[in-house]
Design a protein around this nucleic acid. Structure first.
Lengths: 369, 369
DNA sequence: TTGTACGCGTTATCAG
DNA sequence: CTGATAACGCGTACAA
């Protein structure tokens, strides 16, 4: 209000901070034109600007502490070289690894990745893009439930319309990770051979003599968990030399240690008691181990437990978890590669990444064998 | 190249996608001027635009699928209402909680938070801002080591200069979380009463009769870990009724279960053997428990273990970890509030948040008592 | 080799 | 109540 700057239309109350130098300022300071500054700083000056001038420009930029205005650059260029990675949660290190993989590939191509943990109830952020308001060139969504994905699409502005300030994913190229290859408008898909993992788990348990199996299934409407259930059903349906194992129970559970504990307690206290617990996630598996122990059952002597993901947690607990290792980092990397391909108009090869069963201490021979 | 659009200076090869509608398009479609569109969509139309016109504009925007161009908006407004949250890692859920807290407060003020996990070796991303290239209004840095913070500052453009494409944190308002209140150029600071936590831990162990304590200290140059060490030294120095416990050993360790296991193994296999292990982090504490068990020691009968953070992991392992709960979410929220204050020119109250020792199963009476 | 001019899409001012 | 108009900072075709 009491400011005396020439700028009556002050964009922001920058207060005490010195106004950010612009390329004009650099140009003035170096005694050249704006265009020259742009050329030099954009590394396109060779053969067009004299080395002396170029160096002068750089010096000026350095002393002024100039950095280009990203908004202006984006506006002019029409792109931001930035991708949004939407993940359902950060409560396990799985998605941290997905991000790492994506960020590494992105960096190689001078791209940035902005991470958006879809808020589950925390605070008023119903719209995925309400919070992650970076200007984006594309979206990578990992293991998202369909509803969340719908919100991501924009879902057609219902209700009060555009009050949220815009930037819905609407229209942006989308790459889906570990999600239904069919159901989406995704330009590309990267998937994991989840079914293989489940089959391997069943084979592992069967070989150990287990015949009564319970499934602690994630109570989340995400495709990746649906696959687990279907693959399990199929694997159990197949012949196993006359002694087919059966699914004695399915318990839905939240994706946390506490929820896993509760679900496992229920699963283990009903007859017939299962000798093996297949869990959709390592967090749940850890909870299941706790539940068994509280019930006076030993793992793996009395009950075997398996998980999915191979989180850091899997080797932190005792006994260590037999689990299906999912190549999180590779998936993130492949997702970013696919997005880059789409952005460049190239066809994105839709990949399916292999998984591996890692046998550890939480599984053993079925009791009475 | 072969395109026939009017736009010879095509910014981006948008390829097949339909060109994004602009406010001009909306205006044309609704039969009004751009300014009217801006007013209506910005919810500043009451009393200036007829309700009929307003609704027409909204309808047009809806049918066209219009969403405002963020780059242009930022350019015009000079701000992006976006903050960057820089964290050292996402391998534990601690920083996920910090983010949740910050994002919740941000959302209340129509702000966004972009999360930047400082890459530790993964991929070529030396510059914190190389990857998180969103246009930013401010930065919140949590528990960062000084070197990383220096990079964040921009550290004075050395070497080849601005080739990185700009956007260093240079000059942006910075709020530091759980970091040295002295050492920075931070506009505000939010800290945790870490020292209290360490004192409580020592008191807890002392009361249980422990006299030989080892410290599994994080081998990270972050302030928060320095405080732990200093507070421990002080707490041990104070009188404890004639029978002062002593620090028999300090082992530096990486912040992971495996590193904790290795460090604890070393700490427990040298004489005199400590009866209690104070760990800088729950991940380390989990590793320490594993180490003890592998050495044939029971927790807590033979050796007690304590941690910091109260991660989900703390209650996932058996026995559950006695640990110092750090109010991560509150810290994130307070950090965001402080940043908002700074941005508005208000004074930011520098806060210190209380912590609490949570006694669980990993600590017990000292052996031989 | 360097400078001039224009437009990206938005918001705010001011005159109708 | 509405419509021109200017400006935000940058990148590039074109003229000098």
């Amino acid at each position: 209000m009491t400011s005396t700057r020439r700028d009556e239309d002050a964009a922001q109350p920058r207060d005490g901070r010195p106004p950010r130098p612009t390329s004009r300022d650099v140009a003035r300071s170096a005694g050249v034109s704006q265009a020259t500054v742009s050329l030099v700083l954009g590394d396109k000056w060779e053969g067009r600007v004299s080395p002396r001038t170029a160096e002068a420009v750089r010096a000026a930029a350095r002393t002024l502490g100039y950095r280009p205005n990203l908004a202006a650059r984006s506006l002019r260029l029409g792109g931001t070289r930035t991708a949004l990675l939407v993940v359902p949660a950060l409560t396990s290190d799985f998605f941290a690894r997905v991000h790492a993989g994506a960020a590494a590939v992105a960096a190689e191509h001078d791209f940035g990745v902005v991470l958006y943990p879809s808020p589950e109830g925390i605070g008023p952020a119903p719209d995925p893009f309400g919070s992650a308001r970076a200007a984006l060139d594309g979206v990578i969504a990992s293991s998202m439930a369909p509803e969340a994905l719908a919100a991501l699409r924009g879902g057609g502005p219902r209700g009060e319309g555009l009050r949220d300030g815009g930037l819905r994913g609407d229209g942006l190229p989308l790459v889906m990770l570990d999600s239904d290859p069919e159901g989406g408008r995704a330009a590309a898909t990267v998937n994991l051979a989840i079914a293989d993992g489940m089959r391997a788990t069943v084979a592992h348990l069967t070989a150990l003599g287990h015949r009564r199996i319970a499934h602690l299934a994630a109570a989340v409407g995400s495709w990746t968990f649906g696959v687990r259930a279907r693959a399990l059903a199929e694997a159990l349906g197949e012949g196993h030399g006359g002694e087919a194992p059966v699914l004695v129970r399915t318990r839905p559970t939240g994706l946390s240690v506490t929820d896993g504990l509760a679900a496992a307690t229920e699963a283990l206290t009903r007859e017939p008691r299962p000798t093996a617990l297949i869990c959709d996630d390592d967090l749940v598996a850890a909870g299941a181990c706790k539940a068994a122990r509280r019930l006076g059952l030993r793992v793996p002597e009395d009950v075997s437990v398996t998980g999915f993901d191979d989180l850091a947690l899997a080797t932190a607990v005792e006994p260590e978890l037999t689990t299906v290792r999912l190549p999180a980092q590779e998936m993130g990397a492949a997702g970013m590669r696919a997005l880059l391909a789409v952005l460049e108009g190239r066809p994105a090869d839709t990949a399916v990444l292999p998984v591996a069963l890692i046998p550890r201490g939480s599984t053993g021979p079925a009791p009475g064998r």
